[in-house]
Design a protein around this nucleic acid. Structure first.
Lengths: 236, 236
DNA sequence: TAGATTGTTAATCGATTAACAATC
DNA sequence: TAGATTGTTAATCGATTAACAATC
């Protein structure tokens, strides 16, 4: 569990999907689940589920499956959501203020501890029950509130500059929503979400399926799979 | 360009990243760019850029590189953002209303044509300059406005039901923001974005780096790479 | 021409899957 | 015990990279 070998990045990403699925089973009152069931809803194979989990330890019982509660607890520990993480949102426009109010974050153990904006007209206003602070207070607030993750929701042209300031202030990870690529030191983790990019992938997939149909082929140009976070399922 | 072979899903995803990067070069006034440069900002290799593009055609000039304007046009055509796509947002809470006002969508050729909510108190209100309609009008509106993509921003427990209605109404693709896995027929494209999941990945990466440091190892448990949409870069 | 950079091939690397002994 | 399901090994599959002839 602690002295792990190399974990494929893709496997690490699927851990979150397993957790979400398990939380659903938990709400449904299930106490046990098999790798086959867990895989089903996510369009994965049972072997992949077992393999992914095996990178981190032995969680199942042969002949029985996985205890839902226990596996949730284990995954939360692995992912780090068993502890509280304080975050700060920089850029309180449309998206920033929506994220400030988003309930899904605290459900998973994340707390939005502070909001920042460079626009003096926004500073002092309230979003999600919090006052918006000026950028000048970033470093001090990050320290005082023990903020470890920064969320960037500023226009693309300011993303790098904001990332630099967050890094200088000492955050350990950055979630970037600006449609720009951002560079950070290797010691800081970075995830990016480009919302328009998701729609682009969608239109690509739609067109691709169309082209496919036109060609009358059965084998698709792009396997109809994963995109975004990889959560995808089909029926019918 | 039209009779393509099998394209790895990952390659298709990187196309959007190339487009974003190229749009930056275009704004900067660059007329030509090499695979090496294009790869640089995205922490990819030049070979990968050339390979990815080669799945779709020949866009470069040996000895010269790629014409920025032309490659942008080609990528937009491949991704489908050279034509207009009408979208509908279902669930006009925090996130839904932020997306209704998000400028980044139309910048890439997407138009939010309608908003829907099941809450009678929201119906009739305005978000992003549009009136919120009742769910009962979904099918008719999708047809009238030629909506081809649906965006789901309802609570997890209603995601599947909304997806079913969107599919029944005839959308060709769905972008799901609800933290639940959703099943759609194979004829409908699906991308999912789970915002809390992105923070989970971030906390995982932060912890992983920490564990790594503690072990004093140089080789990381998880290669410090990709997550979210794969846009990631590091410097230093 | 010399220098640069493409598109593509072949070799490498990594991730997924099938299969099964071990276990409840 | 018989049936189910795990963790893990070995085989397969797919994606990335290095290298280079072709081209501007």
């Amino acid at each position: 569990m602690s002295s792990r070998q190399d974990v494929p990045r893709a496997a690490a990403q699927r851990l979150s999907l397993y957790l979400r699925q398990l939380q659903g089973y938990q709400r449904a009152g299930r106490s046990t689940v098999s790798s086959h069931e867990l895989a089903g809803g996510l369009r994965l194979t049972d072997a992949q589920v077992r393999r992914d989990l095996a990178y981190f330890g032995q969680f199942g019982l042969p002949g029985v499956g996985y205890k839902v509660d226990r596996l949730i607890a284990s995954l939360r520990r692995i992912l780090g959501t068993d502890r509280g993480w304080s975050t700060a949102i920089v850029g309180v426009g449309n998206l920033g203020s929506a994220l400030a109010r988003y309930r899904g974050f605290e459900e998973q153990g994340f707390r939005v501890a502070a909001l920042f904006d460079s626009d003096p007209r926004r500073v002092g206003q309230v979003a999600g029950g919090m006052a918006i602070r000026p950028m000048g207070e970033l470093a001090e607030t990050v320290r005082r509130e023990a903020v470890r993750l920064g969320i960037i929701t500023v226009p693309a042209e300011h993303a790098q500059e904001v990332a630099d300031r967050l890094v200088a202030a000492g955050v350990r990870g950055i979630l970037n929503f600006a449609p720009a690529s951002v560079a950070v030191p290797a010691s800081v983790a970075l995830c990016s979400v480009d919302l328009a990019l998701q729609l682009e992938q969608l239109s690509f997939l739609v067109l691709d399926a169309q082209r496919e149909r036109r060609r009358g082929g059965t084998s698709p140009g792009v396997p109809p799979e994963v995109s975004g976070d990889g959560r995808e399922t089909e029926a019918d």
